[in-house]
Design a protein around this nucleic acid. Structure first.
Lengths: 200, 200, 200, 200
DNA sequence: AATGAATGAGCTTTCATTCAT
DNA sequence: CATGAATGAAAGCTCATTCAT
């Protein structure tokens, strides 16, 4: 029926949900809205997701899976802490420009009490923080990184990464293509400056 | 009725709402819960607040009013950028330990579209960012601060500040009194390192 | 506001629900119907009952409470088995004429699997059966009643009682006032004949 | 696909539905459940039945057809009222032990208003009652049966029959094989005692 | 004939808000 | 001022039924 590429319905729903959630926020989004955006009936959504929350969790999951894969690739490539920071920032800026909505949605760490998905989102964040902590600890060991508490540094680094989409939402002028390298460079520079070992 | 000091009812409700919101999140909190926590009847709340959202906005307002006052005091005291960062971090860590719940609640920047209060929260964040930008611009002018785009630096700085309560939620062990100075020192050091002008 | 007697709202809802359930059956009755019948808003119902099922259970409860009270009174009055049967039949016919709808509703024993209210209805029936069994056992001991398994006799007796409203639903002509004594007499006679000890 | 005898699909569905309905009750049973139990696809069911209700009606129909056939056989065999009662009770006890679930399902007379199948079930019950009435009237004419209103006696007799599965559900110990003759004997005796003409 | 993905009407229930007392 | 019973809009979710394959 559709001449367009017809990606599987589950993806269509996820895409639609991302748009709707990002535009309206999770709570204000009605399942009906997602259905309309996806061009399917309300009931169809429940063939692919147990409930509204599962849709949100799926979105988070894809994002975090990609992020954790990226981080794993750092490890395999034996990148230095500085390279890692550069790569993370670059990736995040890129994502934030391509998918501003979803990144804004994802950047919000949940309240501990809003145990969305029984704490699954919190668990994802914790994974990322753990990996970042490891990198920093390794960097300290190798003398690339200033000596500080890794988990504190990791949290700050992570916040900086997550703030990028927020920044672009506040200052849309920085989303322009020509601003891209400058933004990446400045953010990465800031982050690295906070981390690196002073050269004596 | 109460022999105790009876702070005006509005404050009681605000305090109660802060507790309830922080424990359960805004959407999952029922007005009835707030009323019970405050020891008033549900209807009474509507004598002091137009609706549930207004309560949240009032909480935000107090927080931001205090924060902006604090920032104003920096200006009056003609503090250097480094001192400002120190003071901000110290204040935030202090608050986060005293009122962990509310700070976590407040630290979440809204989605642009969740026009809570018609964008009033966004406006508050923008105020803070503007002031921080000014400080950084001034610092650049004075040669204390590395030369970068102030609004970018301000956003990063602000994210770092806002991440503190999240950090403490993830790592409760850092909330202990004896961890306090170390946490302040490390965060401030990180932030300042990202900002300061390299000594040639 | 209302000039009529204003029985407490809970009762109004129960009465309305009885009518609606009896007319339409439990499953086909919408809460909205009950609300309309009771002249209250849908939400009001949930101030008095946890959910739709609780309404049904309340109806059952009142009926069974009255029935069990009646049965208790038999015991206190030291009535003979024959008198008890007479009284039960008479009461049931009376009720079935006054409240045909509710009695038809109540006469349906639930499927074991439809554990409405977690088996509370089944428990009520069991109570009644237990009492009837006791009476029969006592009657056997006293030589008034033929010697048979009390629980079997009790079940039959109970079925006869419960069949009365069904009978009147099938044969409305027997609901006429003048038919009343005849119906009572015939049913009681049948039941007693099945129970009594043959005079040798 | 199946090597086993493949009884026609319609029967398979009916059997499955009987199981499912009996286990869960009509309303709580999903068409999907029936399909799974029958090992067919949901859509297939609609090739054989107009809708879910039609399945239930078919089940009732088979039961009543058999019952009415049985009753017809009484007439042809010129059985006395006592023999008829004996036979009915015996058949019902037998059925109730073999198919306890379905009999419990069937034993529930519908609310007049639950016009299941537009009153078709009610019509079946009415058929049975009419036949029983005839037998009793004939028995009265022949002097075997006490003189009473046939339709009243028929209703009571029918209730007794229908109560048997309920009894067995309440007292599973009476379903044991060795209890069988006693149960039949006691129920039939009770019923016959209510009916028979007193010997002067 | 058989399938099962898709549909959407319709249900129960919640809870912010109102207002008569 | 304070109350809390009453309201009813609104939303998530189910499942009987359809129909393209």
């Amino acid at each position: 029926m559709s001449i367009q590429t017809a990606p599987d319905k589950r993806s269509r729903i996820l895409e639609a949900a991302t748009t709707v959630f990002a535009n309206t926020g999770f709570h204000a989004s009605r399942v009906q809205d997602i259905a309309e955006q996806a061009g399917v009936a309300k009931g169809t959504i429940y063939l692919y997701f147990r409930n509204k929350e599962e849709i949100l969790l799926s979105i988070f999951q894809s994002y975090f899976d990609a992020l954790l894969d990226l981080i794993d690739s750092f490890q395999q490539a034996q990148m230095t802490a500085e390279q890692i920071i550069d790569a993370l920032v670059q990736q995040q800026v890129k994502n934030a420009i391509v998918n501003p909505k979803i990144l804004q949605l994802l950047g919000r760490r949940p309240l501990p009490a809003e145990t969305a998905g029984g704490g699954r989102i919190e668990a994802y964040h914790r994974h990322v923080l753990d990996r970042l902590s490891s990198f920093l600890a390794e960097g300290i060991r190798l003398g690339q990184v200033r000596s500080f508490t890794p988990r504190i540094g990791a949290n700050i680094l992570y916040s900086i990464i997550l703030s990028i989409p927020q920044h672009l939402a506040f200052y849309p002028e920085d989303s322009l293509e020509r601003s891209f390298p400058k933004l990446v460079e400045e953010v990465a520079c800031f982050a690295w400056a906070g981390v690196r070992k002073e050269e004596s």
